[in-house]
């Protein structure tokens, strides 16, 4: 298998300028060079092979998006090297752009006041996509993502889920080799998330598209990624099989129940009560011992409840676990 992405000692430092306000201030800003340096990515190295799906994880502000922006040619690295498909993204930006697809979950890449179809046709012209390929792709994506429901709707009127489906399809129209996804499921409901994940899987399997995705959602990781790269505080902390992390991922979950009334004995087998305040009770349980469904069923059989919710472990907890289990690649200086 050949290497598609090669990142070596990649670093990015931002200069954040001190900003003066007002007319005279903006004049002074022209000449002043007062700034502080912020290290967003530090000495990150990894390679990705063709056809892999890699989860690029980390807490907010860890440097995930900055790394993606360097891989896509949006930002110029401060030091280190990066190649995608053999191209240096910031130097050969246009060549690189022809062979990658990009979706940033936070905003659309489509044209706000154009219907989806016209946006796609514009992309066809921009990427010079042959007619046959264009029609084949639109048909296939329509089948997988039901684009037909909103193909004539202006992008600004789409729901978040529809917009994400349109953006994903748009990013793949020109048959890119690599797909960069930044938070592709952020803000979506469970059904929409499942659909997006299934689509990514299918595209990866059928077209050998290499996928690098950042996410906050550990479910995304479990469903999609065999391999995980973890960065925290700008540095690479873990790079390896998801299976290594699996144990950490599937450990314990929290179940929070609002009972209809205060019961005297609310103990449930296989679940440890960790917290109680009035009618609100929190249990800790391990899905390996008891499934969430079985647990809820056991509660419903005995008590009346008002509300119930399950809390998944989040990225922050995963990182904590990585730190605690000594799986760290670059231990911080103050790490025991």
């Amino acid at each position: 298998m050949d290497t598609v992405i090669d990142v070596r000692a990649l670093s990015k430092t931002f200069k954040v300028y001190h900003h003066r306000k007002g007319f005279l201030g903006s004049f002074a800003n022209l000449f002043s060079r007062k700034h502080r340096l912020v290290q967003a990515v530090a000495q990150v190295s990894f390679t990705v092979k063709r056809g892999e799906i890699v989860g690029y994880l980390g807490p907010n502000g860890a440097g995930k998006s900055t790394t993606l922006k360097m891989l896509t040619g949006i930002l110029v690295p401060s030091s280190g090297s990066v190649t995608v498909n053999g191209y240096i993204p910031h130097r050969q930006r246009k060549e690189n752009a022809k062979r990658i697809g990009v979706v940033f979950g936070q905003r659309s890449h489509l044209w706000f006041d154009l219907p989806v179809q016209e946006s796609f046709e514009l992309l066809q012209r921009i990427y010079r996509i042959p007619q046959a390929q264009y029609h084949h792709n639109v048909e296939m994506f329509d089948e997988l993502l039901s684009l037909g429901d909103f193909f004539q709707t202006p992008v600004r009127q789409l729901s978040l889920g529809q917009r994400m489906r349109a953006d994903l399809a748009a990013a793949l129209l020109h048959n890119p080799d690599v797909l960069f996804l930044d938070e592709p499921t952020v803000g979506l409901d469970v059904v929409a998330k499942a659909r997006i994940r299934q689509f990514i899987q299918q595209i990866n399997a059928e077209r050998q598209v290499t996928v690098v995705l950042t996410t906050h959602d550990l479910d995304d990781v479990e469903k999609l990624c065999k391999r995980v790269i973890l960065i925290d505080d700008a540095r690479l902390r873990f790079d390896g099989e998801l299976a290594t992390l699996r144990r950490l991922l599937s450990t314990e979950r929290l179940l929070i129940v609002d009972y209809a009334e205060v019961y005297s004995d609310i103990s449930i087998p296989n679940a440890h009560m960790t917290y109680q305040e009035g009618t609100r009770v929190q249990y800790r349980f391990s899905p390996e011992e008891i499934s969430t469904a079985a647990l809820i069923k056991a509660i419903l059989q005995k008590f009346k409840i008002v509300d119930i919710s399950v809390q998944e472990p989040d990225i922050e907890e995963l990182i904590k676990a990585v730190y605690e289990d000594n799986l760290l690649l670059n231990p911080p200086a103050n790490f025991p």
Partner: peptide
């Protein structure tokens, strides 16, 4: 500010 320039940078156009 809107990030629209980022969108331009990922296109194969100047």
């Amino acid at each position: 500010g809107r990030g629209a320039f980022d969108n331009m940078l990922i296109r194969p156009l100047g």
